[in-house]
């Protein structure tokens, strides 16, 4: 394939060529995404070195398993899902967050719904979760810890009251404000892009 043509080829067509052992197609597809994968990993870790490690691992994972791409979603969604899961797994492993597995917080109904989701919807959900985790991660420590304790680790208001040494209504108020802030950031991230929001997250303070 000539360079002129390959640059206009869609991702999914490139995958097809890669399956026919077209090295040029592999180079083109890789080059389209390696920076985006790095930036995505950075949005999780906020540390370049870690982001580099995760990015190279996620890229390897994706490109060495490109034959398992079935085309049920776009290539970019597939790649970002792999990256997202890889980052989450690494973060969990490093215990930076003590995440409860999401299934443990979900009821049976939600689990059933998960199973009935199409691959596209699953990918979309993974993408939304990824944005949310990145935003939580970027919040000031107190707010981040509070949201993690309440929504990821399932602590009760009573437990939080004792742990933070404040009244129940103060816990509720802090939670409400942090939630509202997160919702605003999430909406902004969907509108203007996650990176833009992460760069300016400190401008949003909870009063």
């Amino acid at each position: 394939m000539s360079t002129r043509i390959i640059s206009k080829t869609t991702d999914e067509e490139l995958v097809m060529f890669i399956r026919l052992d077209d090295r040029e197609a592999l180079g083109e597809l890789y080059n389209r995404y390696y920076k985006k994968v790095f930036n995505k990993c950075f949005s999780f870790t906020r540390k370049q070195e870690q982001a580099f490690d995760l990015a190279q691992e996620a890229l390897m994972k994706a490109f060495e398993n490109i034959h398992s791409f079935k085309g049920e979603s776009s290539f970019s969604t597939w790649l970002y899902t792999i990256t997202h899961r890889h980052c989450l797994a690494a973060l969990k492993k490093s215990s930076r967050f003590q995440f409860q597995p999401l299934e443990e917080n979900s009821g049976n109904e939600e689990e059933k719904n998960d199973l009935s989701l199409t691959a596209e919807e699953n990918n979309e959900r993974a993408e939304q979760e990824s944005i949310m985790y990145s935003l939580i991660n970027a919040l000031p420590e107190k707010e981040r810890d509070l949201l993690n304790l309440k929504y990821l680790q399932g602590e009760s208001i009573e437990d939080l009251k004792t742990q933070l040494n404040i009244s129940g209504s103060a816990v509720k108020m802090r939670l409400k404000r942090s939630r509202e802030k997160l919702n605003t950031l999430y909406t902004l991230a969907l509108t203007y892009g996650l990176d833009q929001v992460l760069e300016q997250v400190e401008l949003f303070t909870v009063s």
């Binding site: 592999l26 180079g27 920076k35």
Partner: peptide, 19 residues
Amino acid sequence: STDSIYHSLLEAHGHFLQH
């Protein structure tokens, strides 16, 4: 600068994979 270096290293690896 470090961003450029990490990007470049990832690109170098793409070159490796390709060739």
